[in-house]
């Protein structure tokens, strides 16, 4: 092929591409009335109102075309947002905090769940009957498990062990996904684990495991509500799309209210969207302490302090830079 011909072909191809793209852009532009919002999430109980709202068309009615994408792991949610393949994300607060500290510009915009004393707890540290441990002190030298590094469960173990005068060096750590933990406890592969629902409910019913709760809640001190789940977005997106975020929050808020008022619908939704058996759905509860979804610096600071104490953060850091409340 001659050079000139190749160049001409290349130019022709480029022109065709540009025309095609322009035509595509026009077509989609003409069709779109609603604002598009791409939401990346980890599967968790707190997502349930979002699934329900999506199925009922509540987002569409409010002028949002929401696109849901499930990913595994908090870092993947952050990566999805940082890369621009998602606009808004859901995870535990630890991943967005870590992301911000390492130069990935995201901020938490809404809170979906909290824990508080005495009984609004959604995370448990459980020992098996066979381990012989009755409390945290009994776990010295034992094998303890949690689902992932840098997770709320890691923070929980660190904080509670510190409260009991121990550290992670006093136990043997095994990283194990939630679904495998009950079998590992029953088979004696681990002595204790950090778990959430529906796994906690299942363990509690299992006489062979003989689950002994040695602590509950992310932090040892939960006299004030502690942040459990957050929605976050990139700085640029927040600046340009405040209205979309507020609408998003409003629809979630309404859907939550409806679900909380209707137990039968909540259980049906847990079966449909989380795949729970109807029996397991009877134990299901949304981790909601406060009805509103707003978030403030005061929510984040205790977590930062706890992460600092636990050695999960190396520098002192203020919460101010991490939060931009976009609740309606």
């Amino acid at each position: 092929m001659s050079k000139a011909l190749r160049r001409r072909l290349g130019r022709g191809l480029a022109a065709a591409l540009v025309t095609g793209l322009a035509a595509f852009a026009c077509a989609t532009g003409a069709m779109a009335e609603n604002t598009k919002l791409r939401f990346a999430y980890l599967l968790a109980d707190s997502d349930l109102p979002i699934f329900v709202a999506q199925k009922k068309g509540a987002f569409q009615a409010a002028g949002l075309d929401v696109e849901l994408t499930e990913v595994q792991g908090g870092p993947a949610v952050v990566a999805a947002i940082a890369s621009g393949s998602a606009d808004v994300g859901y995870a535990a607060p630890v991943p967005p905090i870590n992301a911000r500290l390492n130069g990935v510009m995201v901020k938490m915009v809404m809170a979906l769940g909290h824990e508080v004393d005495p009984d609004k707890k959604f995370l448990w540290l459980v020992a098996s009957k066979a381990s012989g441990a009755r409390d945290l002190g009994g776990l010295k030298g034992k094998k303890i498990a949690f689902n992932a590094n840098g997770s709320l469960c890691e923070l929980a173990w660190r904080d509670h062990l510190a409260q009991a005068g121990m550290s992670m060096d006093d136990v043997q750590v095994v990283i194990l996904p939630f679904p495998q933990q009950e079998a590992a406890l029953e088979q004696g592969a681990i002595d204790a684990t950090c778990t959430v629902n529906p796994f906690f409910a299942s363990m509690s019913r299992n006489a062979e495991v003989g689950a002994q709760v040695v602590a509950s809640g992310v932090l040892a001190d939960e006299s004030k509500p502690i942040l459990n789940d957050v929605i976050f977005a990139g700085d640029d997106y927040i600046a340009a799309n405040a209205q979309s975020l507020r609408t998003f929050g409003k629809v979630i808020f309404d859907a939550r209210k409806e679900l909380l008022a209707n137990r039968a619908e909540l259980e049906a939704a847990a079966v449909e969207f989380l795949g729970l058996t109807p029996e397991a759905a009877k134990d299901f509860n949304l981790p909601i302490v406060r009805p509103e979804v707003s978030i403030g610096e005061a929510d984040v600071q205790p977590l930062l302090d706890a992460m600092k104490r636990a050695g999960m953060l190396t520098q002192d850091i203020a919460a101010g830079d991490m939060v931009a409340n976009m609740a309606p």
Binding site: P75, V104, S151
Partner: peptide, 9 residues
């Protein structure tokens, strides 16, 4: 590797 990833390193 996992720990580095979770910490965005």
């Amino acid at each position: 590797i996992q720990r580095q990833q979770e910490n965005f390193q």
